[in-house]
Design a protein around this nucleic acid. Structure first.
Length: 454
RNA sequence: GGCGUCGUGGCCGAGUGGCUGAGGCAGGGGCCUGCAAAGCCCUCCACGUGGGUUCGAUUCCCACCGACGCCUCCA
């Protein structure tokens, strides 16, 4: 059975779905006001891997990930650029999906938008006011988290110790520094929606509460996101749900940061790499491999050197895939080495130990290569099938070649084989040198000269 | 100030109270090859510092040094 670290209890615990055989998960998606960066890419990959592993394990997965399409940052950018806020949101959202597709992240089962849930948010806010845990102030409606007994659960801090913090500003309209806005009254030039307390727009933390509960129901299985979302965002979501008498997420999962030069990558720090820039400058699969090689809770350093390193590792996997393809083995999930599959499941079930799984994958590659060298087809087939199962479970797509090679190039490869057969190595080498100079990788195999793009 | 994480070889990055330590990349040697490439085999290189607990610590505890994160912008 899968075990995951639960932020709410601070340790690895069994992950038991509310409904056997079916997992409901909610992953906090982006606020669409700018290009996605590597940090967005990481959380998307981490939860994509979890989702695929659950699917691979035979479970159904309801995967909800929101698009925050109304927010201060969107409005600010719209004002800066003299555009409509919705235009910013729409454009950034399309860039978001392009980036997700590029790194091979499965589309969510549903992708609710905050603006489509304003009515539901108003209902929740009214409920919180009725219960006396939220109040109307001069500039909006605020929530008092102090009423929630275990507030600070996800922050792993008590309210008192948080208030000792120097950064907490006492906004003039709040009763307590830790209170947060559920509803912000409209200011000139801002988009707004009607509410019983005045026109305005929702605060950030409310949307995820209504959307997750609406689409996944009370007591859904897992709520996740980047570590910086644990507090305040998730803490505040949870506080609202609890205060409204609802049962919220059963399990909380947060992934570690992407770092650059040992420092967190963040838009606010201005040290971010645009996700699309990364996938355009290197093999997009390299980022997935890089993320898989680190444990999801550890920070991962992403530099040109580390992506190049991952790309090089990928070349070994692709070479393996090509070799298996040309060996014409009868590969299917059914013939996968059961011991290898059991070992893979064992390490993945241990808090998603993808580094161990990747290590195992490379061991299987070596095993297959050795078996093929020894013409041990049975061994090679079982190990290769297991390796492909691992790849499938973590969403790693290997390239077994098969791309279109121009007939003219194939003709020259044939000429080279003829020259080699005639032991005319000068001609053979000249042909190879010419092909290499044109950007082809040339390899000799039992089946003759093989050519593929470099 | 409060809370917390981390410090592993040339690089990335796992892991463990003792059989000495995943994996990848890079480096060296060998096998294979007409020569290469790919592949296989072997190999160099590590547990921040100082104490403590222990028969034994890289792994547990304490201190220190250093890095980083959260304390309502943040994936």
């Amino acid at each position: 059975m899968l075990h995951l670290f639960d932020t709410a209890v601070g340790r690895v615990v069994p992950f038991e779905p509310r409904e056997p055989g079916r997992v409901s998960m909610y992953v906090c998606g982006p606020t669409v006001y700018g290009p996605p960066h590597l940090g967005h890419g990481r959380f998307s990959l981490v939860f994509d891997v979890l989702r695929r592993y659950l699917l691979w394990s035979g479970l159904e997965v309801d995967y909800v990930s929101n698009i925050t399409d109304i927010d201060d940052k969107i409005i600010n950018r719209a004002n800066d650029e003299g555009r409509d806020w919705s235009e910013i949101a729409t454009r950034c959202e399309s860039v978001w999906w392009r980036a997700m597709d590029a790194i091979g992240v499965m589309r969510p089962t549903s992708d609710p938008h905050a603006t489509a849930y304003v009515d539901e948010m108003v209902i929740l806010i009214a409920e919180l006011i009725d219960r006396g845990v939220a109040y109307v102030s001069a500039d909006g409606v605020y929530f008092s988290p102090a009423v929630v007994d275990d507030y600070g659960l996800l922050a792993r801090q008590t309210i008192d110790s948080m208030q000792a913090g120097a950064r907490v500003e006492v906004a003039e309209h709040k009763r307590s520094p830790i209170d947060f806005a559920l509803w912000k009254f409209v200011k000139p030039g801002e988009p707004s929606w009607p509410s019983p307390w005045g026109d305005g727009r929702p605060g950030w933390h409310t949307e995820c509460v209504v959307m997750s509960l609406d689409l996944l129901g009370d007591g859904f299985d897992l709520h996740g996101g980047g570590q910086d979302l644990a507090f305040p965002h998730h803490e505040n979501e949870r506080a609202q749900a609890v205060a409204a008498g609802r049962t919220f997420a059963r399990h909380w999962m947060h992934n570690g940061f992407v770092e650059v030069g040992g420092e967190k990558m963040a838009k606010s720090l201005g040290n971010f790499t645009n996700l699309l820039d990364l996938v355009e400058s290197t093999d997009p699969r390299a980022y997935r491999l890089l993320v898989l090689r680190a444990h999801y809770r550890s920070p991962v350093e992403v530099t040109r050197a580390s992506t190049d390193d991952a790309a090089a590792a990928l070349r070994r996997l692709d070479a393996f895939a090509r070799r298996v393809a040309s060996a014409d083995l009868a590969i299917s999930p059914a013939v996968a080495d059961p011991d290898a599959i059991a070992e893979f499941a064992r390490v993945m079930d241990d808090d998603l130990d993808t580094p161990a799984a990747i290590a195992q994958l490379f061991s299987l590659v070596t095993e297959v290569n050795t078996a093929l060298d020894a013409a041990d087809t049975a061994r090679a087939t079982a190990a290769a099938a297991a390796a492909f199962e691992i790849c499938r479970a973590v969403g790693l797509v290997l390239d077994a070649g098969g791309s279109e090679i121009p007939a003219e190039v194939l003709a020259r490869a044939q000429q080279r084989d003829q020259a080699r057969a005639a032991r005319d190595f000068a001609t053979a080498d000249a042909i190879r040198d010419a092909l290499v100079a044109e950007g082809w990788v040339v390899e000799d195999t039992a089946a003759g000269t093989q050519v593929r793009p470099a």
